[in-house]
Design a protein around this nucleic acid. Structure first.
Lengths: 126, 126
DNA sequence: TATGGTACTTACGAGAAGGTAAGTTAATGG
DNA sequence: CCATTAACTTACCTTCTCGTAAGTACCATA
């Protein structure tokens, strides 16, 4: 049984070569950066070069707590996805933006979104 | 500061149009299908049209328990990613393969892998 | 001296996810 | 009659994630 897809395994043309294990690890590593109840929504608030203050994000994201907002932002900052810009003022002002690499997530998320759109409707047999 | 990426937000050319919230939900939905300690490694064992028995997967995946293997396979089956082929024999024989849609994950995972490869090396300031 | 605004930080608890180990089923060969 | 084999299933426990709620620091203003 042959399959007609142009690619049957990821990374056929990559500069790296992967085994099943290292490819899975690589993708797992990428997914770990995106896992977290609030990361994607934060990401989408910052895509397109947008720069937002902490309080703007807090107001813009329905249901998030300060603790979670800060936690997810800090993780993404540590991962190199988010840039933190501090103004030394009182009251404090801190802005958040994506790094170039963070912005580069777009096409990848787009591919996932497109894939998800094609999900066949489930046929449930009783 | 301008960013040079051709796309600044996901799904510019999609047949669907997304708000920040619906796009985030869509990607979250896609990620949820892939989350789980063992799903990716299973996926990579089945990519390329491979068909494997339960016991082959069990032997091929280092450290997985039967409980987890079955759990993750069943979830992916319910999600339409994995196909389950039962032979009515004793002792039992059950094979697992990817659906066409499951195979179509490849380019999306490839995009993620490529993105992850480009992660800049972190500069940690003491 | 008291109040407010912004960006955090901490303590505590509930629930989900994952691990280990043992049990179940059903036909077949000895 | 008993053991074997493959594919599960169940009970129980630990660990991780997330949520709520409250507190902190700093300076400006009234």
């Amino acid at each position: 049984m042959e399959n007609k897809l142009p690619e049957t395994e990821p990374s056929k043309g990559s500069k790296h070569s992967y085994t099943r294990e290292t490819a899975a690890e690589g993708v797992e590593h990428a997914l770990k950066l995106l896992e977290g109840r609030w990361k994607l929504i934060i990401l989408f608030h910052l895509f397109g070069g947008q720069i937002k203050r902490f309080s703007e994000l807090e107001r813009g994201i329905q249901g998030i707590s300060q603790k979670m907002l800060i936690q997810q932002l800090r993780q993404m900052e540590a991962d190199g996805i988010v840039r933190r810009i501090v103004y030394h003022q009182v009251p404090p002002k801190v802005e958040y933006a994506l790094t170039d690499w963070g912005q580069a997530l777009c096409p990848a998320l787009d591919a996932l979104l497109t894939w998800a759109e094609e999900q066949p409707t489930q046929t449930v047999q009783p």
